[in-house]
């Protein structure tokens, strides 16, 4: 594990005029971690990354890297490298010069630059393209060039802003794996901004989920998936995300419409809740929540059964061999242990 690259954000507030983009963000990232900032667009994840890079100033709060307060340090002096969504390659320079640029700027010796550039280019497999200009590269190659430019200087922090969003779907999946391997081999703390929950789930060691300028949950992919901290997170994570139904609890009983489930634990006074159920945790059986099938989507190895239960829509992932038809009346069953409960008013997990 790497010893450098510990990040700490403290109470970061960012305002644009009257609009507050970040309402006090606190975050700690451990050295060598691959950390994702996940959230829908406008949630403040990119702003957080830019404040960490020093490209934007926070109105309040401090930024620490490796114990030192870098809030007032220029981006170039923070020893961080970044890959932009648009790659931001210098169009008037060759690939070689692009990669060499950050080294030249600190007066590295020519021979050292040359070997470093070739090493970095080889790592992302663009060593045969060094004489080209960015305009002569494909999207994927440009993306690699941007990566090479970032890794060539061996920064203590590696920032990626939606680096895969401009690639086509197939390339995106391949690059995701490579990026993960690259990070492992470099052992550099990496902060990765994405709006794609699947990307974050597959690539990150830990992640912070942003909603409307606040971090609503921090955790490993497993934790976030298993115990979403709020209704918003529950509705964002998973593909398809959790089914969310209105319900009511009283003591150890949960009521969904006329259907009643025994929870096996006492949750106190009667109140309104939102019930979360993962599509994969549902099955059709002799007992359970009554529903009517609206539509069946074939996903290849599984099927997605979309049905109505009272006022709500429920998605259920079933084996491809299961035989259902549109319009069938079924009963949806689930283990009490698979139930996620959220307070109706606040949306917080119970």
């Amino acid at each position: 594990m790497s010893a450098v690259g510990r990040v700490k954000l403290q109470g970061i507030v960012k305002r644009h005029g009257n609009v507050t983009a970040l309402h006090g963000v606190d975050l700690e990232i451990a050295p060598g971690e691959f950390f994702a900032l996940l959230g829908p667009s406008g949630s403040g994840k990119t702003t957080t990354l830019r404040i960490l890079a020093g490209l934007e100033n926070a109105n309040e709060g401090r930024v620490h890297v490796d114990g030192a307060d870098v809030t007032d340090v220029e981006p170039g002096e923070r020893d961080v490298a970044m890959v932009f969504q648009s790659y931001a390659l210098y169009p008037h320079m060759t690939v070689y010069d692009n990669i060499a640029f950050p080294l030249r700027m600190v007066g590295t010796a020519k021979s050292a630059i040359d070997s470093a550039v070739r090493e970095a280019a080889a790592k992302v497999r663009i060593d045969h393209l060094l004489a080209r200009r960015p305009g002569q590269l494909s999207g994927g190659q440009q993306q690699r060039c941007a990566l090479a430019r970032a890794i060539v200087r061996k920064p203590r922090l590696f920032l990626l802003d939606e680096p895969l969003s401009n690639l086509d779907a197939k390339l995106r999946l391949e690059t995701r794996v490579e990026l993960r391997k690259l990070q492992r081999s470099l052992d550099v703390t990496t902060v990765y901004v994405t709006h794609d929950q699947e990307e974050a789930m597959t690539i990150a060691d830990r992640m912070a989920i942003f909603m409307e300028g606040r971090i609503v949950q921090v955790g490993t992919p497993d934790e976030v998936y298993a115990r979403p901290a709020s209704v918003d997170v529950a509705g964002f994570i998973g593909n398809p995300p959790m089914n969310l139904l209105p319900g009511r609890i009283a003591a150890d009983r949960l009521h969904i419409g006329d259907h009643m489930v025994a929870l096996g634990r006492d949750l106190g006074a009667e109140r309104e809740v939102t019930v979360g159920l993962r599509p994969a945790a549902l099955r059709a059986g002799p007992t359970g929540l009554p529903a009517k099938i609206d539509l069946i989507e074939h996903l290849g190895d599984t099927k997605l059964v979309i049905c109505r239960a009272g006022e709500s829509m429920v998605k259920m992932r079933v084996d491809k061999a299961a035989s259902f038809r549109d319009g069938d009346d079924i009963r949806i069953g689930f283990d009490p242990g698979e139930i996620h409960l959220f307070e109706r008013q606040s949306g917080r997990r119970l």
């Binding site: 890079a53 490209l55 220029e74 981006p75 970044m82 932009f84 931001a88 390659l89 640029f101 700027m105």
Partner: peptide, 24 residues
């Protein structure tokens, strides 16, 4: 972003202007 990339690449403001912005 081009300018920001140059700043992060430790070019400083003057060299960012001279080597990255002006050539474009």
């Amino acid at each position: 972003e081009m300018e920001e990339a140059a700043l992060l690449d430790r070019a400083g403001r003057i060299r960012t202007l001279l080597y990255v912005i002006l050539p474009q």
